[in-house]
Amino acid sequence: MDKLVKLGQDMALLWENYYPRYLDGIKNTLILALVATAIGCVIGLVCGILNTIPYAKHDPLPKRFILKLVRVIVRIYVEVFRGTPMMLQAVFIFYGLPYFTDGGVQFSGYSGMWIASIIIVSINTGAYMAESVRGGIISIPVGQTEGAKAIGMNHVQTMTSIILPQALRNIMPQIGNNFIINVKDTSVMFIIGFTEFFASHRYITGVNNMYFPSAAIEMVGYLIMTLVASFILRKIEKHMDGPANFELAAGDTLTMSAGTYSHPSKGTPFDEHSKEHQERVSQELKYGRNRGDR
């Protein structure tokens, strides 16, 4: 118990002295995670769509060749960036690009670090999202595509109006997942000197050696960020689902309640609902019914 009290006191002390640094780290972490997840989603969306463009045997050869090539490239991209640690990718891009271009591409200064970090995290997220988007698209029943085609929509219209909105709804949990992973995993960007939340910890403990209390603050900080993120994501998903109820504009005239219907081949099911009947009723409502009319 004493230890917990001591820990609380230490954390309070650290926070009091260094909260601008912690808050700055949180701000950078959140901005990086948000921007990179957004860009990553766009990359994933593009890759996922490219990967699902259908082609048939009778399509012209160039079209088939290009589509096949695109699929291979996307596949390589996904496998490479999903299969290697993000920390190493960071090093490769941050130091590798200047190395290969003889300094033509440089990530120098504060803005350079931001750009490099955003690029790396985005590309990484994109690799994961590409597969999620592909999964989201193929999870939509083929009937939706056929319904769209049957009213004359082309592939792009079918995708943008019908398939992607539904696929996006289905991959929202995946997007949330990736955002939360990014909030935590951006911590490896300290390797190229990016000052996110974890870098604040490294700086502060470097000054005063209070490793454990600072780590506790980090833990709580990350947990709060991810909890808030998942709460907001749930809200967004709920909003996308729309209201559970709908308003009826008037009564339905054709639905028959149970037991009032006889089979078409045996009875006269349409009498009650025929135009003539409806007209008669509306006339009666207008002019009143005379005795003995029916």
């Binding site: 009937g143 939706q144 319904g147």
Partner: peptide, 27 residues
């Protein structure tokens, strides 16, 4: 051609992401 030849399916194939009115407007 498909726009002039309408089709009604056994499994309805309404667009699940749209309300009834939008389903009839989007095409």
């Amino acid at each position: 051609y498909r726009a002039k030849v309408g089709m009604v399916f056994q499994s309805f194939n309404l667009f699940e992401n749209m309300k009834v009115l939008k389903n009839c407007m989007v095409g």
